[in-house]
Design a protein around this nucleic acid. Structure first.
Lengths: 257, 257
DNA sequence: CGCCGGTTTGACATACTTCAAGAGAAGTGG
DNA sequence: CCACTTCTCTTGAAGTATGTCAAACCGGCG
């Protein structure tokens, strides 16, 4: 009983804290965890100050829709914490995830009135939002932002093209293997010597299917197969470790290491 | 006999002209057909002059490989005329086209040593090439170039994401219909009131298959089906016209007009 | 004419989807 | 703490769109 009440209180506080953030919170850019990777990475202190003045934090709970396709773009934003997804949906309900947004990734684009896909919070998400108009003005006057945004867009483009090969040509097994390898690689970026590290699937089976252009049944079956082959080992439905990295890579269909 | 010799002469002249261009030709930017759409679109006269000094034209014949995956990027370039393809290939030979490069599109990216896909001339192609190093320097000093490159990269990114939906979720029929609709739309950009205009497939069946993540047999069958349904009408294997635009759109699986 | 690359067409194989049922975990409410 | 619902996930059986293999066609060119 006490436990349940406590849980409710925590959640309520969570929501409240969230609302607070929406209205006011404007943490120092200089202490921001994504300071050196986000759109502001190349900015010097003066430029940072300009950004600081037009920024607001917003938080969303896992599952919340952040933006609907066709929404007017009053804000653009950087992901500060959490994971969000970019998705497209067809009239009959088929959907395809076209990007995963991780901390430092950018949402929206200057010079366009509306956004052409849905943005959904996969986990709890915190965004650093900028009013679009002043942000666009800033781009004109602050070369470092356009330069960084160009870099980021080109990186995204490369990633999108890799994904096109995956979607167009890879088998279900290769898709799954590539996806897991991607998670491993990402882990490596944050922790060195991540060998035998426990990993977490940030997405449900359904979302993975969505990301890979498959059905959730196929995802489940392929994961099952790789479990049986001792390539991966699950501790629960989300958490796992890779037991045979080489076999995993082999299964991904990619060349080189 | 005379005909054959003449053909050889023409080809030789073609090649020679080509070599000439490689070495010397540096047409005025101000008269360039892609002046207002390419990476130089926002440049003023001074900036254009800077670009003019580091540019060279290069030509390729249909089928030529322009760049191999992994090639060192000594140049970046704009497509001036013709069509080129960006493609990825897996070890076992499966390939996926990840972009079609039309006049004004940009090849290569500043700040990277190598290119990660193959570039092939689909038709005869002329490129406006810039040495990468000086071009990168120019980006640092010339905000207009970074701004334009950012815009173009973001446009490409949107297109890539649309294509991801196509590759991941659309049926063969929808893919073909979407592809044809794309050609229609492109035609509309150049000629107004293009209704009932004759169109040309810029790609072979094999290349179309490659672009859509299908096999050439499936492409052929679907085109055949749409011919039978009087949605399109072929005058020869390349040239056709759309006889039922509405049905075409319906078949594409996209909403809205 | 005969070759050749691109294309069409057919018969067959299969990887993946679809449909359906049930198992596990997690949350809800008494 | 225990039913009860709900959600995610697994597993099976059956269906189908697309791939694979193979042969024939067609227009262009030598």
């Amino acid at each position: 009983m006490a436990g349940r009440v406590l849980a409710m209180v925590i959640r309520a506080v969570g929501r409240y804290g969230c609302a607070m953030l929406d209205l006011q919170s404007r943490p120092k850019c200089s202490e921001c965890p994504i300071r050196h990777r986000a759109v502001c990475a190349r900015c010097d202190d003066d430029e940072l100050l300009m950004l600081e003045q037009i920024k607001t934090y917003k938080s969303f709970r896992a599952g919340d829709q952040v933006l609907w396709r066709g929404d007017g773009l009053t804000y653009v934003a950087s992901v500060v914490a959490g994971v969000a997804s970019l998705g497209k949906t067809m009239e009959d309900g088929r959907t395809q995830m076209v990007g995963l947004l991780l901390p430092s990734d950018f949402i929206g684009r200057p010079g366009r009135e509306a956004i052409d896909f849905d943005v959904v919070a996969v986990t709890d998400v915190t965004l650093c939002c900028f009013h679009r108009k002043p942000f666009e003005a800033l781009i004109e006057t602050t070369p470092h932002i356009a330069q960084r945004l160009m870099e980021m867009a080109l990186d995204e483009l490369d990633a999108a093209r890799d994904w096109m090969l995956l979607l167009g040509r890879k088998t279900a097994r290769e898709k799954i293997a590539t996806f897991i390898e991607m998670l491993v690689r990402r882990q490596r970026l944050t922790i060195d010597d991540a060998t035998d590290q426990e990993l977490v699937l940030p997405l449900t089976r359904h979302e993975i299917a969505n990301y890979l252009g498959l059905t959730l049944e196929t995802v489940s079956r392929q994961l099952g197969a790789m479990k049986k082959e001792r390539i991966v080992q699950f501790v629960d439905r989300r958490r796992f470790r890779v037991t045979d990295l080489e076999a995993l890579h082999l299964a991904s269909g990619d060349d080189c290491p």
